[in-house]
Design a protein around this nucleic acid. Structure first.
Length: 624
DNA sequence: GGGAAGGAATAAT
DNA sequence: TTCCAATTATTCCTTCCC
């Protein structure tokens, strides 16, 4: 009966079930006419491709909910009691980690971008303002929020909600400037404060409280005053025994207010008891829906109460998180510096299936990503292509490379292959992400591919190859495609794990080039001056290995030289058609096939050498 | 079976 | 009139390979 009523209501007021954009979780939106906003958002979205995609997503979440519900219903008493025991044990373990000795503060600038714009242009004050564009809003001031306008809402819907809304394009240089001013104030209270974005930071104020004989509230008030004096902008602060709770607290008296939660277990548990789960950082729209619709959980207290079900339904990691939230636990230690894990660039445009245009966009994005990576001196090994179709379906395709790259050419080369595989199709977004950086110097700096160094060394020890200095043979053996170029390149991995750009080494796949288009040794010579004695290391190692009787030792005067390699019976394409080693015939335009073929021979050579079955051939190594 | 890699989903700003 | 972003991180699940 109740279900039928609900269904009838959904038919009468379909916008009620469409909760894509609207949420009252945002500060300053408590008094908003939710029904009106939902209706307008629904009317504006209805029938669009975006809307249809949202429906698909909703359906998929509903499916998850249904499946978890049935899992829940099928739990036997024994099973439930088993999971309750596990959960009870975890409660004790988690409780033992509770630390009430630190005082954490979360500071959040109020409607930051909008506030900066109003500060610089007072004529904007007192009127509804959005920072962003017709397609998307970054943030809105409190006057606009009263109409239901909020961040992550498309501008054209915001204007419908609030026709007098003004728009200002974002200016991140400005925001950075004011952010720096605010951070100078933060620094006075905690020199190791954690900035999580331009307008937010966590401060451990334990020491300053002790030193100044102040409590959390006093420090929060003083800090907010300081920020206002320094920037002319207001901020809100939350004080609590851990960061998770401090973040929740900073939102309570927004804007321009503070909230303090005492470092006391009872106070924490009381605070948590009625707190909606959606207020917790890490619990978003989907998780909220799942917890509510599967287990009827809406408050943090219930996360603790229904812990048996939670451990039965969720993976350990998630269950532990939910339980710790239910206990009011959060991080209290100062985190170590965490190096960046990925870097990306993406662009939205009006949907098109014009491949020339799409590859043009891809090139632009590859260039942006490459430039960004170069700024931070990053080289990555995993490239991910992200696309969004005209129907808003998002897909990602990744490839792990043989070596670390950051040049536009390398990125574009691999990205093009990934994109090609997804076409034809109409796209509205293309993005590229690079990950698996070589910045930790341990392990990851070592290329997957064996280096020439290693090959030399192992070969030297087997005394079975001849190394020479014939340019053509370098090309012949190394081959002209990427895998082989990698081997060459990987010899130049520095102690930072960085790898030289292969701009001078990269060559077209498949073809054996005549000596005229061989890698330019002058460039290789230049490479010796790259980085912090990069090739000095290379040379030193070389010299160490040169003690081998088959190697001619080198002296410093030969420092401008380069090691090369020669194998008798070099691999080449006879008449530009037939493989010199096995006779297989491949036309010159079968680039990829030729590439694979030369790979095969090189791999076989390495394998033979590794297994000690390399045919007895004379190997010489010398520096020319 | 375990680890690495790929892919999708989720979340936060 | 415009017609739903960009960036980074994490988690979970699946697939593949050894």
């Amino acid at each position: 009966m109740a279900e039928m009523e609900a269904k009838g209501e959904e038919q009468d007021r379909p916008w009620q079930s469409y909760n894509t954009v609207y949420t009252n979780a945002k500060a300053g939106m408590d008094g908003v006419d939710k029904e009106r906003v939902q209706k307008i958002v629904y009317e504006m979205s209805k029938g669009s491709k975006y809307f249809e995609n949202e429906k698909r997503k909703e359906a998929s979440i509903q499916q998850r909910v249904d499946s978890m519900r049935s899992h829940c219903e099928n739990l036997t008493k024994d099973e439930l009691s088993h999971f309750e025991k596990i959960a009870d044990k975890r409660v004790l373990e988690l409780e033992a980690t509770r630390n009430l000795s630190r005082i954490w503060m979360h500071v959040d600038m109020d409607a930051f971008y909008a506030a900066v714009e109003m500060l610089e242009n007072p004529s904007l004050r007192g009127k509804p303002l959005a920072v962003g564009s017709m397609s998307m809003i970054c943030t809105a001031n409190y006057e606009a929020r009263r109409f239901g306008v909020r961040a992550a809402m498309p501008g054209f819907i915001a204007r419908k909600l609030c026709p007098e809304l003004s728009f200002v394009p974002p200016d991140f240089k400005k925001y950075q400037f004011y952010s720096d001013l605010a951070r100078k104030v933060f620094q006075r209270y905690d020199p190791h404060f954690i900035a999580t974005s331009l307008d937010e930071a966590y401060l451990d104020v334990t020491v300053i409280c002790k030193e100044q004989g102040m409590d959390g509230r006093e420090v929060a008030e003083e800090l907010c005053d300081g920020v206002y004096k320094e920037t002319g902008l207001t901020c809100s602060a939350g004080v609590a025994p851990n960061r998770l709770l401090a973040k929740v607290c900073s939102d309570i008296n927004k804007p321009n207010g503070q909230f303090v939660l005492q470092n006391d277990r009872m106070a924490v548990m009381t605070f948590i008891s009625s707190l909606p789960i959606r207020k917790i950082g890490g619990i978003g729209k989907v998780t909220e829906q799942i917890l509510k619709n599967v287990l009827g959980i809406t408050t943090c207290e219930e996360l603790q109460q229904k812990r048996g079900y939670i451990y039965a339904l969720f993976p350990q990691c998630s269950a532990d998180f939910f339980l710790s939230v239910g206990l009011g636990l959060g991080k209290t230690g100062t985190p170590q510096y965490v190096p960046r894990k990925s870097m990306s660039s993406e662009r939205t445009f009006s949907a098109t299936s014009d491949e020339t245009l799409l590859f043009h966009k891809l090139e632009d994005i590859a260039e942006t990503l490459s430039n960004d990576m170069k700024k931070d001196d990053l080289y990555g090994r995993t490239l991910t292509l992200k696309i969004k179709t005209s129907t808003f379906e998002v897909r990602t395709r990744a490839v792990s490379l043989q070596r670390y790259v950051n040049s536009k050419e390398d990125i574009l080369c691999h990205a093009s292959k990934l994109l090609k595989a997804e076409l034809p199709g109409s796209l509205r977004l293309i993005g590229l992400r690079m990950s698996q950086f070589n910045d930790d110097r341990i392990g990851r700096g070592v290329p997957i591919q064996r280096t020439l160094e290693e090959i030399f060394n192992s070969v030297d020890s087997s005394s079975s190859m001849t190394l020479g200095s014939n340019r053509e043979n370098i090309n012949a053996v190394i081959g002209c495609h990427e895998l082989n170029a990698n081997v060459l390149n990987d010899s130049f991995v520095d102690d930072h794990g960085s790898c030289l750009s292969n701009a001078t080494l990269h060559s077209e796949p498949g073809n054996i080039r005549s000596s005229g288009d061989l890698p330019d040794f002058n460039h290789l010579h230049e490479l010796e001056h790259y980085g912090d004695g990069l090739l000095d290391n290379f040379k030193i190692e070389r010299n160490e290995s040169s003690s081998d009787q088959h190697l001619e030792s080198t002296n410093q005067s030969e420092s401008n030289s380069m090691t090369s390699l020669f194998i008798e019976e070099p691999f080449c394409w006879i008449d530009d058609y037939r493989c010199s080693l096995c006779g297989v015939e491949l036309p010159p335009d079968f680039l990829e096939e030729r590439q694979e073929h030369s790979d095969y021979h090189l791999a076989a050579m390495i394998q033979r050498e590794e297994s000690g079955h390399f045919p007895e051939k004379t190997i010489q190594k010398k520096r020319s």
